[in-house]
Write a protein that binds this DNA or RNA. Sequence first.
DNA 1: AAGTGGTCTAGACCACTAC
DNA 2: TAGTGGTCTAGACCACTTA
Lengths: 228, 228
Amino acid sequence: MSRGWDDLRADLLARIRAREWPPGALIPAEEQLALAYGVARATVNRAVQALAEAGVVERRKRAGTRVATLPVRKARLDIPVIRREVEGRGQTYAHRLLTQRREVLPAGPAARLGLAPGVPALRLETLHLAEGRPYAYELRWLNPAQLPPDLPDFAVLSANEWLVATVPFVSGDLVFGAEPASRAEAAALDTDPGAPLLVIERTTRGLSGPITFVRLCHPPGHRVTMHL
Amino acid sequence: MSRGWDDLRADLLARIRAREWPPGALIPAEEQLALAYGVARATVNRAVQALAEAGVVERRKRAGTRVATLPVRKARLDIPVIRREVEGRGQTYAHRLLTQRREVLPAGPAARLGLAPGVPALRLETLHLAEGRPYAYELRWLNPAQLPPDLPDFAVLSANEWLVATVPFVSGDLVFGAEPASRAEAAALDTDPGAPLLVIERTTRGLSGPITFVRLCHPPGHRVTMHL
DNA sequence: AAGTGGTCTAGACCACTAC
DNA sequence: TAGTGGTCTAGACCACTTA
């Protein structure tokens, strides 16, 4: 019948979809399922845990496992380094370091990083190109306190790539938004001021403090795809 | 304190971050780690599998487990029903069914659904409100072939909510983009034509065919947050 | 050909919590 | 307090893939 926990997961999912156990109902305990399917309980556990992680089912000790009433769909987004992102589309990648300078941290990025406005920071402006055309305009703030003393030449190795290979990160968050292109952004992305840009802001934190805040602006028409 | 495989995972992660095994390097085989930590191999397997799922490590049979050279960060987005999304912000939710009619499927949605343009479809326009103010403007196409014969009153129960509770879905995808508000969208969202909207398009498929295609437009300033 | 990860088993102990 | 899920163990077999 089944040759592994994933088959069992699929079978249980099918029975849930078929309303054999309607939303909110209890499904049999692991031991009973193990008996019914003729497998070990650990195998059932893996299958049901996978369903729980997918949001199909909710588990609580002693209370058992219930079919989720309003299933929360979970989408996963893979965030490769931008070079990989572009190359993955079969396009040639290039980047251009527009500006690099030390500057005091403005209020906005400071808030996102959890730092005080006015502390020294490294500010980088980078343009990412796909097939020679603007792919993303990046404004990045780096927290020098969390970086190694000797920095590379960001004109050669993009900050993006250097960071993931050098600085341990622990947590972070990602914010999607739509904003009108500023004059500078429009110029960099070869579009018109006010044009709708997909803006992705990312904050990254390490064990001992915030590392970097990035704001990526993508030109009109850019899309980010996730799978459910 | 010690909760088993997750502590082992954290410890291995720390050693990877500390460059004990630099990017691209092989980490010890499961059996050796099991010996070194004094646990069963299955426990090591769970820990390392978790690291692999997080993109920290790449596993291949016979080749062993290597520290990822360019770690692909994975972010997860929880997509609740819109009512929950709004209520989760502590705001009151309401929705207004603007239009509902049967119409032939235009080319765009048809392509996204994998259906032929011109087949009959159900078209719904809905406005979602938070605290009485526009939260999202929804344009939805439903594939009647995949729906139960008797439909509810979408003015009462939003299509969103009815679908997740009624029609089994299997897979789908999610696309983020930024687009200028059309005149209709601007009017619905109480903003100006051309204003940058965060657009989220979702396609949902069942076992035997595509179910629905939704286009959600959020007013300027709207943000979607994910955690890494 | 051999070593690796992927998975299963049968049994066990524990933490949690609804009853 | 009893039943549930969470986890661990020691051993085993297998598929895969690289050397």
